[in-house]
């Protein structure tokens, strides 16, 4: 807390906090208000006498109805959920084992391997999708969920590995040594001692991976083409922007409904997740 005069607290704490909260929450408010705004209000010119950009007097569900009945939105949701869960599971599994190995086992080139994995994370997706598209085509995976389930781990595994490496390094190695003296094999020590302690780290890696694959756009855009295979971000933008016509109401309804699962996952695990990021292991 900031000490001293009252004005200091306002200038250095309350006002910056208010600005921060406002800029953080306003887009969500805008999304909600646009979702429930009738078309007549939505396309009213800015200089009309009854122009009310920040609120609406006649809220409506017509856009949500349109989104759910006239588009394949529920299919997109299911696709996205399936792809996000599967690629998160794969990445978490690999990232956990790789992170453990890189932080605990002594083997030649462990350090450079760790750096190598990190470097692959730095290669931008906008470059990587070109060779990946070729691979997807060779394996005849185009326009199937597998195209994304197998390509998302290319950036999720390095991410999970690095996050878990950091977390495992913070766990005192005596815990594991003690378990091994107590009669556990290395594998059992990992399962019974290290992983339970690393739960906050595992959760944060999982949440991050889930969010990253939920929001992923470019691979989904390139590797999927038929409407019934699409994910929410691609489906909403490709089906509700036709030419230069933006269907703002359904677009915003799609964005709103699409962000609900992620928001739920976050709020559900928020405590663990924060503990995972700050990396606190209490002995």
């Amino acid at each position: 807390m900031i000490e001293g005069a009252k004005w200091k607290r306002w200038v250095f704490f309350y006002i910056p906090l208010a600005v921060f909260i406002f800029s953080l929450l306003f887009p969500f408010y805008w999304m909600i208000i646009t979702t429930v705004r009738p078309d007549a209000e939505l396309y009213r010119p800015w200089n009309a006498p009854n122009y009310t950009p920040f609120w609406t007097t006649r809220p409506t569900w017509e856009h949500v109805d349109y989104l759910l009945s006239e588009t394949l939105f529920s299919t997109w949701m299911l696709n996205t959920m399936l792809i996000a869960l599967a690629s998160t599971a794969i990445s978490l599994f690999c990232g956990l084992l790789a992170g453990y190995a890189l932080s605990r086992l002594k083997f030649p080139f462990a350090g450079s391997l760790g750096t190598g994995i990190f470097v692959t994370y730095l290669v931008p997706q906008t470059l990587l999708f070109i060779p990946l598209a070729d691979i997807i085509r060779n394996f005849h995976l185009g326009d199937t969920p597998w195209a994304l389930i197998l390509t998302y781990p290319t950036f999720l595994i390095p991410f999970c590995t690095w996050l878990m490496m950091g977390y495992f390094k913070a766990i005192p190695k005596e815990l594991e040594e003690c378990a091994r003296i107590d009669g556990a094999s290395r594998f059992k020590a990992m399962i019974y001692i290290i992983f339970p302690i690393a739960v906050p780290g595992i959760l944060s890696a999982g949440i991050f991976a889930f969010t990253l694959s939920w929001n992923e756009f470019i691979y989904a855009l390139v590797f999927l083409s038929s409407p019934e295979q699409k994910t929410v971000p691609v489906g909403v933008t490709s089906e509700l922007i036709r030419g230069d016509v933006f269907f703002w109401g359904p677009l915003m309804a799609g964005a709103l409904l699409g962000s609900i699962p992620v928001a739920m996952v976050y709020s559900f695990f928020v405590e663990h997740y924060v503990a995972g990021l700050t990396g606190s292991v209490k002995g």
Partner: peptide, 28 residues
């Protein structure tokens, strides 16, 4: 280590933080 029939006490105690005292003692 597990097959040497030894027990070790560490400087930082190395208690398993997610287990109760009973579970810590019962683990081995």
């Amino acid at each position: 280590p597990m097959d040497r029939d030894i027990a070790m006490v560490f400087q930082n105690y190395a208690l398993y933080p997610h287990m109760s005292v009973y579970q810590n003692m019962a683990f081995g």
